[in-house]
Design a protein around this nucleic acid. Structure first.
Lengths: 195, 195
DNA sequence: GATTGTATTGAACGCGCGTTCAGATAATCT
DNA sequence: AGATTATCTGAACGCGCGTTCAATACAATC
């Protein structure tokens, strides 16, 4: 066996991921070296390879974990039956989740191209899953005559792009609080698909 | 003097910029080497330095030119007096312009962080100029009672994010043509700020 | 055809990259 | 106490990076 309490691996592993996420988000995957990550963790570069087989996998694991958490978190939101209520829940959820994890969101939308084809396909698929969640809400609403959306697929992409953009300008302690931001975006989304 | 006709500099210069734009957009600034750019242009790496003092300036010039062209192109669009007509013009212009220059748009939104502080500030300022163009339309419309937008500043950012997102999924020859895409987005934007 | 000066090559510079690995360190188990 | 083993160091590997520069090629002019 091995040590359990006092084992550094339970600290170093998460720290590596947290540091990598922060540095990748700030400077971009290609611009960050394994040595930079190691230095910030307080470890030599070689030690990173006890926790990841290579740099790309480190990125992939971050993206995969983020998408898994995103989907799990949304699926945990109680699903109302009313399309309007579900749409509002989605809008407020997406904003809240993205503001809570701005770094991971940035990564997910900007560093996909640094993945190989197989890894890329995995993340792309999860993203499509998420987009489909919103698309389904829109289609249900259209079917019930509650929404008007000439192209629900495009509408879902448009709405997600709009909501995700909040991370590019929102600053904690700024003019608008999170609640107020949610209100503004919900007002726009609600009207955008209004019947 | 020197040669004029037959001078390669008039060909190599633009080619370098075009190749750099394409490679930076596809792989990211940090992931593309000067040697890769040179190889695609059909020249040795050293020759690039006849056209740019360094790699970052090459990126900056691309971003600067793009933003200048964006602002000039929008300012060349005849300004209707009706806020609704101006908003529609903006939506259709933004989509058309961005689809025509997907590479440059990608660059402008993803590689800003590779600029030094002064260069960053220049591009950021131009971006803000552009955003203000839309914000002004919204404020005028609100003042005239034609639009309802609880926060025109945020609304303009939201709309731009939504419209810019079109470049991430639009494919030439896909299900929707450019005109149809413009229709879908205009429908959403119009309603989103409707009175 | 010699001169001029731009356009380009090709080699070199020091440096940091991702990754590997033998060996040191220290916590746990017997 | 001694053996075991997870954890980490520190040095090394070959390689490609951004950039510089003397030498060269060559089109335009005289």
């Amino acid at each position: 066996m091995a040590r359990k309490t006092g084992s550094h691996s339970e600290i170093t592993g998460p720290r590596i991921r947290a540091v990598a996420r922060a540095l990748f988000a700030r400077h971009g995957f290609a611009a960050v070296s394994m040595r930079q990550i190691a230095a910030e963790v307080g470890v030599q570069a070689g030690a990173l390879y006890l926790y990841t087989p290579d740099k790309e996998t480190l990125l992939f694991d971050l993206l995969k974990a983020h998408m898994d958490e995103l989907l799990a978190a949304w699926d945990a939101v109680p699903a109302g039956k009313d399309p309007l209520a579900r749409l509002e829940a989605f809008v407020r959820f997406h904003i809240r989740f993205n503001l809570d994890r701005a770094e991971a969101v940035f990564l997910s939308y900007m560093e996909l191209r640094n993945l190989g084809p197989e890894n890329f396909a995995v993340i792309e698929g999860l993203r499509r899953d998420y987009e489909t969640r919103l698309e389904t809400i829109l289609r249900d609403g259209v079917a019930q005559g509650r929404f008007v959306a000439p192209d629900p697929k495009v509408a879902s992409l448009a709405i997600i792009a709009m909501l995700t953009g909040v991370t590019t300008w929102y600053r904690e302690g700024g003019r608008l609080g999170r609640e107020a931001v949610g209100d503004v975006y919900w007002d726009m989304v609600r009207k955008a698909v209004a019947a």
